[in-house]
Design a binder for these strands. Structure first.
Lengths: 148, 148
DNA sequence: CTTGAAAGTCGCTCCGG
DNA sequence: CCGGAGCGACTTTCAAG
């Protein structure tokens, strides 16, 4: 994982339809060498898959909310229970007063309420605290060049 | 946007390298018809771009945190200020006691602390409250078939 | 919407250096 | 790592039903 690899990842994040010839040009390598590097990035799990960036609003999911889930029991094995709710896009176990933080997308706030209700069906869930997003400034992929 | 379109989007979310012939087979259409539908989904902004799914940990960004940002002023025009911090992956204006919620990825908690310090450099920011993620259950794209 | 065909591009793999 | 050569597959567009 040198800086050339990071640049390749950055280019693919912007547009994964680039040809290997174009990738090579951008980093000063031949198409074959660029191809080999990308192949290794995929094999090594850095690049998981080629996918598509979808506008949630265009799919009718214009409401975004983050929900803090309180629990009265250990939630470390509840991943599938959260995954079973299709409106939940992310679920994280967190440090702090709450136990789990989930990111939810729905069409309306009524639907959001419905998701909250379903959260209570998950064993151990004792409470929820929803925060509705008014405006999303941006959502972007990780920066491969981030100093971090 | 009928159900066939949603299925096409779902297939492309899983693997955007699928050929139009394979897409057509999956939904019972010819390759040409599938191609035309996907073209329209792109033109209509439903599909924004073809990209790549990257493992943040493989990029050295193993620490994930959500930060509630309190403010003493209107933050509606501060999108660029947040975007200028590369470790910030998402920034949302929220309803509730805090003003902005940001999602941050760094290599270490020390780096996270550094990001928090930079947040205070943004005009209007009066406080932060960071929640560190202990384990991510899952992160996935929106479900195009979600009843929403 | 279908089938079929054409032309161009690219993926992918091989080689020799 | 480079350059080039080669084959197969895919994209993209078109016509005609």
């Amino acid at each position: 994982m040198d800086d050339t690899d990071r640049t390749l990842v950055g280019l693919l994040l912007q547009d994964a339809t680039r040809s290997y010839a174009a990738l090579g040009d951008a980093v000063g390598l031949s198409a074959g060498a660029a191809h080999e590097r990308v192949r290794k990035l995929r094999a090594g799990g850095v690049i998981r898959r080629t996918t598509v960036d979808v506008d949630p609003a265009a799919l009718g999911q214009g409401v975004l909310a983050f929900v803090l889930v309180d629990s009265s029991a250990w939630m470390g094995d509840s991943a599938e229970a959260f995954a079973a709710v299709p409106e939940i896009q992310e679920a994280h176990v967190i440090a702090g007063s709450a136990s789990v933080l989930v990111k939810v997308r729905t069409s309306t706030t009524e639907r959001l309420q419905d998701v909250l209700r379903r959260l209570y069906d998950i064993p151990g869930v004792s409470g929820t605290q929803a925060t509705v997003v008014l405006e999303t400034f941006f959502e972007r992929p990780p920066d491969p060049h981030s100093p971090a």
